[in-house]
Design a protein around this nucleic acid. Structure first.
Lengths: 242, 242
DNA sequence: CGTACGGTTGACGAGTGTCAAGGGTAGTGG
DNA sequence: CCACTACCCTTGACACTCGTCAACCGTACG
């Protein structure tokens, strides 16, 4: 509400940005309207269907983007096919690796996703001009570093059941920003195979642990993807977060 | 040589910094002599013995530091005592988490270590003034993020033998900057217990895999800590890096 | 000489992976 | 409307890697 009002008083704000879901949380919040206008001239929206890989591992990257909605998975693959998801990104995260031409992992839309694409050159010019922008990107990098290290603990030291519970906790925390006090209801953005690749397990083990959590009453499952968590504290406990 | 010559032509360079091992690689390389002089007024050197924990998990942090020499391990502990090392830092890495008062992990000297300490306020003032400094820190964060994600693949998808070989490869790559083409000789900075905590294994499994690599001729071991790798390519292959 | 500590080795068992079969649902075509 | 297929998920039986428990070794140190 407040934000819409502000928009009315800033008629110079680019039209395409006015209704942007990511403008207030993403990197664009570091930009002044004039700068946003300049950037928006070079940017474009794009819808990506679930399952679509839009950056390949080892591929050269000529653009950056903001996630407007949806979930993107970042994954690494070994030569023999073993795969590990090394990060999930949600709106309004920034994607792309400043100061590096080549991606060290693949990016794939886990759900239907919409992104706002900026050419590489435009972003790098802006970074040079606007310290606040680099500050924003730095903070996002630090956030992702924290998440990666938390997940290292999960991968290295937790049991299969704790891993699955940790994953469900993670998704729950990204689903219900408002009523995540006690219970939570959400759609899983990943298939069982993807969850396995995120947790360093097999499909079968993920499935068994989901069943076990269900039988213990910690979660309810409908349609494989729709999950209800009646008591988030119990789930956190099952995840090993005492 | 060249750098020493430059120092002679910049007499305003702080005395304590002139012989600093980290000055040309660490964050200090982003500073002009005058800024370095200002910062050095508030900085101090400190030696830390191996095994000494100097930042506790959940502790508030009032200072940042550069590693001058030695190896520092960053680790997380679960409530029941399970532990995971989430990063190793070598000279001239910067330590400390900008824009966050509390550490989410513990920092402990793995070997005898020397660091250069800066008060929190001084660094944060400098960051605000010098965009290049934030750029430097941003780059270090991105480097650590890459390393963390590489390690996620190791933790989630590699076998015990591949994990141990990966660890040895990592150490080798940080030991012999000059002759790491074919073979490598180095001292392990971590005990078996610490290696286990880094790899998400037990001491016994690490020990067994070391023995196995030794019997296969991929490594030679003396005194538990002294390791020789006759063929780094073979080690990389054993680590799953084809 | 005794103790402490870190590392190795062996025997055994638990947890997770592998392989295989089967169930549920959606989409397709007759 | 009903096969028929394809896909994802679940479940079971079994195997194997890795963890657990215990004994032992070598070195450092008092």
């Amino acid at each position: 509400m407040d934000l819409l009002a502000r928009d009315l008083h800033q008629p110079e704000l680019p039209v395409v940005c006015r209704s942007c879901e990511a403008r207030n949380g993403g990197i664009c919040s570091a930009l002044k309207p004039a700068q946003l206008a300049e950037l928006s001239k070079h940017s474009s929206r794009r819808k990506i269907e679930a399952g679509n890989e839009f950056i390949g591992q080892g591929e050269s990257v000529s653009s950056y983007s903001n996630i407007l909605n949806g979930v993107v998975k970042l994954s690494k693959v070994m030569a023999d096919g073993r795969q590990q998801i090394v990060g999930l990104q949600f709106a309004p995260d920034f994607m792309g690796r400043p100061f590096q031409g080549e991606s060290r992992m693949a990016a794939e839309a886990a759900t239907d996703t919409e992104i706002c694409i900026f050419p590489r050159r435009a972003i790098e010019r802006l970074i040079a001009d606007i310290p606040e922008l680099e500050h924003q990107l730095h903070n996002q990098a630090l956030k992702e570093l924290d998440e990666a290290r938390d997940w290292m603990l999960t991968l290295g030291r937790k049991t299969a059941q704790e891993k699955v519970a940790s994953f469900l906790s993670l998704i729950a925390s990204h689903s219900d920003p408002e009523q995540q006090d006690i219970s939570s209801v959400f759609e899983l953005p990943l298939s069982r195979a993807e969850i396995a690749d995120f947790l360093g397990l097999t499909i079968e083990t993920v499935s068994r642990q989901m069943t076990k959590l269900r039988k213990e009453g910690i979660i309810q499952i409908e349609n494989n993807r729709h999950v209800t968590v009646p008591d988030l504290d119990r789930l956190a406990f099952a995840a090993g977060n005492d």
